[in-house]
């Protein structure tokens, strides 16, 4: 039971003061300034005038930027979808594993997650680049297959052309899935673990196959967990900066890369501020959608 703050004023003041002070000064005020800037105009190199203009927002709906927003949402959605496909069987395996093994399996998924993001991205570069390990293996196979075909009297394969795996959209999606897979597995596991197992057993006893049980029994019951997994994966993927920056090519820019450019090279802070807030609004809309969905789901159950 919570107590009224009046009953212990000094304790209340002590635990309220510092966190509130920090949150307001070092988080809310910086964000508020960016918000104000998004209605400003550049005058000169470093001066920004607060003109209350909406021109930064109207510029953001030019086809170029709308295209990038749409593309970012698409990439994030594709990433989320692939994470579900990859992660669902893993979550299932963890759920029905014996207790001891369970801990190890979770550790298996979580250890890369705790590893520095930059190092993981760098590791992918080393794997995917032209001289990377994938292309090396491919080259080796190519050479040997070529030799074999000459031996069999067929036409040789011709010159080896490495697969283009890096600096394109494929690499960005690959990298985002690599980075965000643990985000998806944990909420899925958490949802599956709460399921009533007798429902699954009943479904299997009554003759439904495993695939049908998953789709018609497990998926609907685990829907809230799946929804929160989607949200947790989608939001960081939408705002990803490092992955498209290091793994992507010139046409794989996402919102975050455009924002960074406005604040660094392009030096157009008001426009960058407007883009930042648009990205934030999109995040909030995603969260609100999930909350509404969860509420409706809870209502349907009651």
């Amino acid at each position: 039971m919570e107590q009224s703050w009046r009953k212990a004023k000094s304790v209340f003041a002590l635990v309220l003061g510092p966190p509130l002070f920090w949150l307001v000064l070092f988080f809310l005020i910086p964000l508020a300034i960016v918000w104000v800037y998004s209605f400003g105009t550049n005058i000169g190199l470093t001066q920004i005038a607060f003109t209350g203009t909406f021109s930064n927002y109207t510029r953001a709906i030019e086809p170029l930027y709308v295209g990038i927003f749409v593309k970012s949402v698409g990439v994030a959605a594709l990433t989320t979808g692939l994470c579900i496909v990859l992660g669902f069987p893993v979550a299932l395996a963890i759920t029905f594993a014996p207790d001891k093994l369970k801990a190890w399996l979770i550790l298996l998924i979580m250890l890369p997650f705790w590893t520095n993001l930059l190092i993981r991205t760098y590791a992918l570069i080393a794997v995917l680049r032209d001289e990377g390990y994938v292309n090396m293996t491919y080259h080796w196979l190519w050479t040997h297959a070529g030799g074999l075909m000459t031996f069999a009297g067929l036409k040789p394969l011709g010159d080896f052309v490495p697969l283009e795996l890096l600096h394109n959209n494929f690499a960005v999606v690959f990298g985002l899935v690599y980075v965000h897979l643990p985000f998806m597995v944990l909420p899925l596991y958490s949802a599956l673990d709460r399921l009533d197992r007798s429902l699954l057993e009943a479904s299997l006893d009554l003759g439904a196959g495993h695939a049908r049980t998953m789709l018609q029994i497990v998926a609907p019951l685990a829907l809230p967990g799946i929804a929160s997994g989607i949200l947790i994966t989608f939001i960081p993927a939408l705002g990803a900066y490092l992955t498209p920056d290091l793994l992507g090519g010139p046409d794989s820019q996402m919102i975050a890369n455009i924002i960074e450019r406005q604040f660094k090279r392009a030096n157009d802070w008001p426009f960058g501020a407007a883009l930042s807030f648009l990205l934030m609004y999109m995040t909030f809309i995603a969260i609100a959608l999930q909350a509404v969905l969860a509420k409706r789901n809870a209502g349907a159950k009651a």
């Binding site: 809310l28 964000l31 705002g239 900066y241 501020a273 930042s276």
Partner: peptide, 27 residues
Amino acid sequence: LDGAMALPIVVPEICMGVAMLVFFAKV
């Protein structure tokens, strides 16, 4: 306050990054 405390967790990193840049450059 509860909602505001959750903000730093959900706000995209890039937005917080630029907010900090602006704050330490101007304020």
